[in-house]
Design a protein around this nucleic acid. Structure first.
Length: 292
DNA sequence: TAGGGACCTGCC
DNA sequence: GCAGGTCCCT
């Protein structure tokens, strides 16, 4: 167990925004300015003490400070990122200023990210979070913070052996079937070694690998590539992004459905415009539409 | 190849 | 009804 203290301006890191932006699903505010977050087998218990210039973050964690830095990409200067994005696309300016303090997280556990996003399809946040929490409860309990038990996220082999009936009873709906099936498919490809190995591949290869798994379509594949595999040119297009993207770049597609062809055209357009920063552009656009 | 319907569940 | 989609079938 490690403890350390960091200082940030509110515009540098806003944990509340990071927790609620739909990038991680086992993060919650358990008290006033007190957060508990779980990433695979790591947990983070964070107190934020507001200051006049900077806020003080007191972090207690099973991981180390280095992991915390990686999780929130603290090596990345957001003012500099903002400048680069603005240069590539001035239309982002209002979205950047709206999303101050929101950072693209980089969870350590790719398995948790993959199965979390499997729960998001045709679903809403109020149901997604409890579902991911329940999936997490199949992992072993490693700690407790106040009344909150902390389970490490189950490994792929464990998920592959879950029974559909069991998950149905827990309210997973039709995902009760696909969750173990996806785990079995991953297992046959080499389980965690295969999934984490995709981090070293190109975006294009990782994307094509992921969509070849039944139940993972282009949107989930892009979320997994972006958040779990650190392939930041991935640009997930969901209904929120579709609103924004058609408004900003494809007005002729306003009121049209997002088909597979349009998905490929629009997300390629974003990648051509923003390159490796496209995933970051996506997050600011998405967060704005999510919040209005 | 593009478009429409079905799919679990819970909150608006 | 509809939600941060995907599959399956015309």
């Amino acid at each position: 167990m490690n403890q350390f203290t960091l200082k940030f301006q509110a515009t540098e890191l806003d944990i509340r925004r990071c927790s609620n932006a739909g990038q991680v699903f086992r993060w919650q505010e358990i008290g006033n300015n007190e957060f508990l977050g779980i990433d695979g087998g790591d947990w983070y218990h964070i107190f934020i003490i507001p200051g006049c210039d900077e806020d003080t973050f007191e972090v207690t964690t099973s991981a180390d400070e280095c992991r915390f830095h990686s999780l929130f990409r603290l090596e990345l200067s957001y003012p500099e990122l903002g400048r680069q994005l603005t240069e590539l696309g001035p239309e982002l300016i209002p979205y950047l200023s709206f999303g101050q303090g929101l950072r693209m997280m980089r969870p350590n556990c790719a398995t948790e990210t993959l199965f979390s996003f499997l729960c998001t399809a045709n679903n809403h946040l109020a149901r997604i979070k409890p579902m991911v929490q329940k999936l997490g409860s199949f992992g072993s309990k490693v700690h407790r913070v106040k009344e909150h038990p902390i389970h490490e996220f189950p490994n792929i082999a464990t998920i592959a052996r879950l029974k559909e009936s069991q998950l149905r009873e827990l309210g997973f709906g039709y995902r009760a079937k696909s969750i173990p099936l996806v785990a079995q498919e991953l297992e046959s490809r080499g389980a965690e070694t295969y999934l984490e190995g995709l981090r070293n591949e190109t975006y294009e290869l990782a994307f094509s690998e992921l969509i070849s798994i039944k139940s993972i379509g282009p949107k989930l594949a892009d979320c997994i590539a972006l958040f779990a595999l650190d392939l930041t040119e991935a640009t997930p297009l969901d209904t929120h992004m579709w609103n924004v993207v058609t408004q900003l770049y494809f007005p002729e597609w306003k009121s049209l459905n997002l088909t597979d062809q349009r998905y490929r055209t629009a997300s390629s357009f974003m990648r051509n415009r923003f390159g490796k920063l496209s995933g970051f552009a996506h997050q600011f656009l998405f967060f704005h539409d999510l919040s209005i």
